[in-house]
Design a protein around this nucleic acid. Structure first.
Length: 842
RNA sequence: GCCCGGGUGGCGGAAUGGCAGACGCAAGGGACUUAAAAUCCCUCGCCCGUAAGGGCGUGCGGGUUCGACUCCCGCCCCGGGCACCA
């Protein structure tokens, strides 16, 4: 055994060993005691920094721990390999995305290996390879058959930098693209969507089952789905005086405040509302309306949706309020959004702040229909809308009701009379999945002049990406101009037709990869029903919080849709979700804390650290840095601390190597222990209990490691040498061996090496996790804290069997306590056995 | 505005309603050494005190309790999500 901790040497040795032995190669035919431990598969960007590393290190520690607990652990890994960065690089450098992606995968695989992270590589999936995307395309076809995939013309988000459309989820609240940072534009385009809105209610309801998910993530999804209950009301358009007929004479609107309908004094349409042009054609207002519509269309989505000045124009038309038959003016206003509800709003200025502002600006009438029961309102004296609850007034036959009670009654009334009824509205929009880019899975659709839109027959899958294409900086997808790709015969009629040249959003690829791991090499079907039913839902999913909405919502949607296809029989993919916090580092430039990124120049490269300290040190520090779900600041000095600890552990074993090996058969025996080894033995078993509890709960690696350090400190304090008693040596041996086992999920290389040095057979992964010896926890004497009026005044030792009365007596007799209760009246004495005595005096 | 988190030493952070600050980092002092590194020992919330000891202390203000970082009520601040969403 070497005196100095030879981390480089042993790490290479054990990485080879784990690989050769295939310790994480899991036979999935039996799912008994299964534990599916999944980490979000990475985009192969090239190299991972220590911030990325946290994810894999946490996952590896969990997998190793669960394996030692005797579970059948499945931990696969793969690559979310389609995506824009590779294609953008290709435009600049000319290297084909496939080539650069596969290169990056090789690099990152080596990185993961160098951290000691073990996976079942035989299940590796790579989403950009045909054996994977064939099945992504197949799922698309299944969705298409069921009407879940459809094409429509819509105002969509256009990223002018990446030259493609984006899903709503990929646009940040400030209106910029989450990937490129470009200001997103609105464009009317014909695009492919997945009908995720059909699943809005199920996605919302099933959040309740997800006890193992962080509250934060569930609340984010809830907000994103944005359910609101209200009513849909049809207003009829008053016919034109000139006798010109309207295409539609109904203007529906959505409201959550049907109780205020009698206060409605006008109606407002979104500028994009279909049919506005016909509605005003030939009227004196036509020009002003059309000018306004054009002007509003020029505004960016941010300008449009930022609260502020509200502009509008009268259309010259009127609609009828179905409740009271009143004719009210119809306006167009830029604060009304086409995408939400029906694109039309019934305006109640007295009870809505936005309508109030608009009515004031354009001098529209304001009428009260909810009265404040505490302070009578008068429209002329009001300074803003009254939006709180109250009593319905001037609304026959609903007057006098509390407004909350009136809402369902008034909605039901609309249904009765046939002009509307209660509805539920969601904020969630359908998922836009087509992208005008090359490096993605081609959408398997063919356009034929005669047959229209024709799905590619399943037997023709995959629709392969052509290899020989030119990457032009024009931003246009090379697929579009690749005749060999687009020109195709119609599968129905055989005439020349044209292929869809858009590819799918990469979030489609990542929405089902966790099913594919179960049958990664199966070229007969996408999903193995039996294996998935046995192994899923995933027992533990680990990844970054940045996917709280995007990936995690899409994957839930896919699971439900695939369930409805009958391919699986569960509806939620991830039982437990753990979202680790980001690693930040102070920028040397401005001293601010940032998430690690190349652009901020605050990236810590693991390679350098591994060279200097070894992978175990990086792992130990990463896990010790703080509670894993929280953000943590990387501190180079802290790495040094982790290294010192491992070096100390190595040295302790080295110093006592002969003694430890010789004591291999000595067993601790409580009957024959003296005080020092008895105390260490108790500490050992207390540590096992605490560490196990920390790992079983929410992965509190930081406190688990702290406990190992404490135990090590205690082991250092006991005097042990070859002349020590059998019990001292037995307890010391068991302590050192247990420390090695306990630390093995965190620092596996040193653990394997020391385990072997201690004369044990590898692999330590096949060792059982230590059990607590309850008898060891027992104390003959207990320290009792003495308080007077809740303040610490002393401490006494009492026998473990001492009864409350005896403890109380001893406490009161204590000289320290005497000093504080002298001359005062003891009102009450609380005795908490095994802990403390509190004496209340006055 | 609504919905989630969070606020504890110089720092990262610990604490089933029961000794606040475990563990680590940094800092200071000492030992070993020709020296350095490494290692080992001691101190380390703030204030008064040589010390023994005492007072204060977990964002702020109340409350419940023998006892509150922990529970309840009302605020302040920080982070995140949603938001002209009708």
């Amino acid at each position: 055994m070497k005196e100095k901790y030879p981390f480089g040497e042993i790490e290479a040795k054990w990485q080879d060993y784990w690989e050769e032995q295939g310790l994480f190669h899991t036979d999935a035919t039996s799912a008994e005691d299964k534990y599916y431990c999944l980490m979000m598969f990475p985009y192969p960007s090239g190299t991972l920094h220590v911030g990325h590393g946290r994810n894999y290190i946490i996952g590896d520690a969990v997998a190793r721990y669960k394996k030692m607990r005797g579970l059948r652990v499945l931990t696969p890994m793969g690559w979310d390999a389609f995506g824009l960065p590779a294609e953008n690089a290709a435009i600049k450098s000319g290297t084909h995305p496939r080539e650069s992606t596969l290169q990056n995968i090789a690099l990152m695989k080596a990185q993961l290996r160098s951290w000691g992270c073990c996976y079942d590589w035989e299940r590796e999936v790579t989403s950009c390879l045909p054996d994977y995307y064939k099945w992504t395309q197949w799922l698309f076809l299944k969705f298409y058959e069921r009407g879940l995939a459809y094409k429509k013309e819509a105002a969509v988000n256009w990223d002018p930098v990446d030259q493609t459309v984006l899903a709503n989820e990929q646009v940040l609240p400030d209106g910029t693209a989450d990937r490129s940072g470009a200001v997103v534009e609105k464009k009317m385009l014909s695009q492919w969507f997945f009908k995720i809105t059909d699943y809005a209610q199920r996605l919302l309801d099933d959040l309740e089952q997800l006890d193992g998910w962080p509250e934060r993530v569930k609340s984010m999804q809830e907000n994103w789905i944005g359910r609101s209950e209200g009513a849909r009301l049809n207003f009829t358009l008053v016919p034109r005086e000139d006798g010109v007929a309207d295409t539609s004479d109904v203007v529906p609107c959505f409201t959550t405040r049907v109780d205020t309908i009698y206060g409605c004094t006008y109606m407002v349409l979104a500028p994009e509302y279909p049919g506005i042009a016909e509605m005003v054609q030939g009227l004196p207002e036509e020009k002003s309306v059309m000018d306004f519509v054009q002007q509003a269309g020029r505004l960016s989505s941010i300008e449009r949706t930022t609260e502020g000045d509200k502009n509008g124009v009268f259309t010259g038309r009127y609609v009828v309020n179905p409740y009271n038959g009143e004719q009210i003016p119809l306006w167009v206003g830029d604060y009304v959004l086409l995408e939400y509800g029906t694109g039309a709003v019934m305006a109640v200025p007295a009870h809505d702040t936005r309508d109030w502002a608009f009515a004031k600006k354009y001098k529209l009438p304001i009428r009260l229909s909810i009265q404040n029961p505490d302070q009578t309102l008068n429209v002329d004296e009001m300074e803003d809308a009254y939006v709180d609850d109250g009593i319905v007034v001037d609304s026959p036959p609903f007057s006098g009701m509390p407004n909350r009670e009136a809402i369902p009654k008034m909605a039901a009334y609309a249904e009765e009379k046939g002009f509307g009824g209660p509805v539920i509205q969601y904020r969630l929009r359908d998922w836009l999945i087509s992208r005008q880019r090359y490096w993605g899975a081609p959408i398997p659709i063919i356009y034929c002049d005669d047959c229209g839109m024709v799905p590619v027959p399943e037997s023709d899958l995959p629709v392969l990406l052509p290899e020989d294409v030119e990457f032009k900086p024009s931003g246009e997808s090379p697929l579009k101009s690749c005749a060999a790709f687009t020109q195709v015969d119609c599968p129905q009629c055989g005439k020349p037709a044209r292929r869809e040249s858009d590819t799918m959003d990469t979030f489609v690829d990542s929405s089902w990869y966790f099913f594919r791991y179960l049958s990664a090499r199966d070229d007969t079907k996408a999903i193995d029903t039996e294996l998935c039913d046995n192994w899923l839902p995933v027992d533990q999913y680990i990844g970054g919080i940045e996917h709280a909405i995007l990936h995690l919502m899409y994957a839930r949607f896919f699971t439900k849709a695939i369930h409805d296809l009958g391919l699986i029989h569960f509806e939620e993919p991830f039982k437990q979700l753990f979202t680790q916090g980001m690693i930040t580092k102070r920028s040397e430039k401005d001293g601010q804390l940032y998430k690690m990124s190349k652009s901020k120049g605050n990236v810590v490269s693991p390679e350098e650290l591994i060279r200097e300290y070894g992978a175990d040190t990086v792992r130990l520090y990463t896990l010790f840095i703080g509670p894993p779900e929280k953000e943590a600041e990387w501190n180079d000095a802290g790495v040094e601390g982790a290294f010192r600890f491992l070096r100390r552990l190595w040295r302790r074993v080295y110093e006592h190597r002969d003694l430890l090996r010789d004591a291999k058969t000595l067993q601790p025996d409580l009957q024959h222990m003296q005080q020092p080894e008895r105390d260490l033995y108790r500490k050992l078993h207390e540590s096992i209990r605490r560490i196990t509890r920390d790992l079983e709960g929410d992965f509190h690696f930081n406190t688990a490691i702290a406990q190992i350090m404490e135990l090590m400190n205690a082991a250092d304090d006991i005097k042990v040498n070859n002349n020590s008693s059998d019990q001292v040596r037995a307890v010391f041996r068991e302590t050192m061996e247990t420390i090695v086992v306990l630390i093995s999920p965190f620092a596996p290389h040193i653990a394997e090496e020391l385990w072997q040095e201690l004369g044990r057979a590898p692999s330590i992964l096949q060792t059982e996790w230590p059990r607590v010896n309850e008898a060891a926890l027992h104390r003959a004497q207990m320290e009792i804290v003495l308080q007077v009026n809740g303040k610490l005044r002393g401490r006494i030792m009492v026998g473990a069997e001492a009864d409350q009365a005896a403890i109380e007596q001893e406490a009161l007799a204590d000289p320290q306590v005497q000093k504080w209760i002298e001359g005062k009246t003891v009102r009450k004495v609380i005795v908490v056995p095994g802990r403390l005595v509190n004496i209340a005096v006055s």
